[in-house]
Amino acid sequence: MSKTWLYALGAIVALVLIVAIRIYFPFAVAPIKVAAEPLPGLVIPIPGFPIPITNSLLTTWLTMLILILLALWVRSGLQSVPNRKQNAAEMLVEGFSGLAEGIAGPKWAPTFFPIAMTIFLFVLLSNWLDLLTPILAAVGIQEQGEIIPILRSPSTDLNFTVGLALISVVLTQYYGMRAHGWIRYWGRFIKIGWVGNLIAVLTGKRKGNPGAVIAMGLIDTFMGLIELISEIAKILSFSFRLFGNIFAGEVVLLVIPFLLSFLVPLIFMGLETFVGLIQAFIFAVLTLAFMSLAVASHGAEHEAH
């Protein structure tokens, strides 16, 4: 019997097994909830700062553990002539490092690369854990007639996504300030340089129409404020983009099996794999792009004026 037929037979057997399991063990599925559920009775008792261990927090730790174990595994066999696993790891790291260099330039790339790479790996793995949702949603603790899943993809917890977005935006500001000095950097948002101009015009040191100076200055200030708001809005768009995509994917993966149990969910799983990859990539690349904008383009803009 050829290999193809063997695979086909395996697939058919798996399908029959799924059908049988669905018929004989109709399992309950946890209700869809936006907020991550704390696991009952599990709290890290820091006085004044109790941390309830939610299912997504547990999964975050699991994700970290997997990533660190993978890193250790790759590191254990590091040699000058690479084997297969080292090749894969090197391709990933080198590809991302090249991307960082392309976006941020050779000066800042070594600084930004580890941040973006960590974001990418962390988000990617937690996105892909989301593919297990149909199983994870059924494995849980029964509490007051409701199932609380033990594991839940971190990307479907706003704490995780907002935390990452905060890190990304705060680090962007930090590097912007480090590159330009904090007075010059914040001058990008709070534009009141026109006041000095106005005083010069009013005292007659410079010619000009005071009304026009005030009008242009107010527009300038307003633009600066808009930039400040867009900076803050980045946190929202970063976190809700990731959360929305992955949470919607989870909802789809949970709902589709109720409509059509066989094969169709597989298509959506493929879609979700792609979405998870793209979202992780976008999170990392946008972080890189914003950081390099903060350190570079602002200065160039000033020189151009």
């Binding site: 936006v34 768009s237 809700f240 983009r241 976008i282 690349v285 946008l286």
Partner: peptide, 23 residues
């Protein structure tokens, strides 16, 4: 892809609103 992410985020805001309304 970056542009798509920006355009898509608007839809995601709508989705978040819908999810909040639903759940």
């Amino acid at each position: 892809f970056i542009g798509i992410a920006f355009a898509e985020s608007v839809a995601i805001y709508a989705l978040v609103v819908a999810l909040i309304l639903l759940f």
